[in-house]
Simulated scan of single mutants.
Amino acid sequence: MTDLDPLDRRLLDLLQRDAGRTLRQLGEEVGLSPSAVQRRIGRYQRAGIVDRQVAILAPDAVGGALLAVVLVTLERESSEHHARFAGRMLATPEVQQCYAVAGEWDYVVVLAVRDMPHCRELGEHLFKNDANIRRYNTLPVFDRVKAGLEIPVSRERGSSP
């Protein structure tokens, strides 16, 4: 579904910011009836544009979480080694995000842990005790400057800001 009209783009922006708004509230923002909004949202879900809806927790409200960014380089880079690494990341709840990247490092991993001892313990478990990891570097996050998951859809591709 690539033929999104301006109302679709505006509605998708609003849903990304807060999918908990009522159909009426969303409709008032975009100038549609609640039933028209519901039909569009259903279309986005069927088309795979809206993958899922989740609750985003405030870390401080649930006891806090220390974030750490880990840069990882594998020793051997076969598809089997990458699949094994990805499987471990997928199976670890503390791994919040994991990206295969180009350049000096093979992966960027974002961890959400209780504290520094937990970070050290998890790092040793996930990265130090793996014979196929050449090196890794853990960077504790001091301040969250911006954290988001929104995909810009309000403008057409190629248009200037």
Rank of each mutant, 00 (worst) to 15 (best):
E28G: 12
V109P: 01
G64N: 09
V95G: 00
A147F: 12
R88P: 01
G42P: 08
G123F: 09
L67Q: 12
I56T: 08
L139H: 05
I49M: 01
L15Y: 00
E124D: 10
Y99G: 09
L14T: 01
I41V: 07
G63M: 12
S35R: 05
A112S: 03
C119N: 03
L149T: 03
A58S: 11
I56L: 14
W105G: 00
S159E: 14
G63A: 15
G42A: 08
H118G: 14
K128Y: 03
R144E: 12
E150Y: 12
G42S: 07
V70H: 02
G64R: 06
T73F: 10
V62T: 15
D13W: 10
R84C: 01
L90T: 13
L111K: 00
N137A: 14
Q25M: 11
N129A: 07
V101T: 15
A58F: 02
E28K: 15
P93W: 06
R9Q: 11
L23N: 07
H118N: 13
A102N: 13
G158W: 13
P117I: 01
P59Y: 10
L71N: 12
Q38E: 10
V54S: 09
D13L: 02
V72L: 10
E156D: 13
A58V: 02
E29F: 01
A36N: 08
Y136L: 06
V50Y: 07
S160T: 05
V141G: 04
R88D: 01
S154I: 02
T73I: 12
A58I: 13
V109Y: 04
P140M: 14
S160G: 06
L57A: 03
C119K: 09
V108S: 06
D18T: 05
L12H: 02
R43H: 09
L90R: 06
M1F: 05
R88H: 04
E156W: 05
R76K: 09
R52V: 01
P140W: 07
R43Y: 05
V109R: 13
V54E: 11
V50A: 11
V101I: 15
L71V: 07
D8Q: 02
N137W: 14
L74K: 02
P140E: 08
L14A: 12
A91Q: 15
L15G: 06
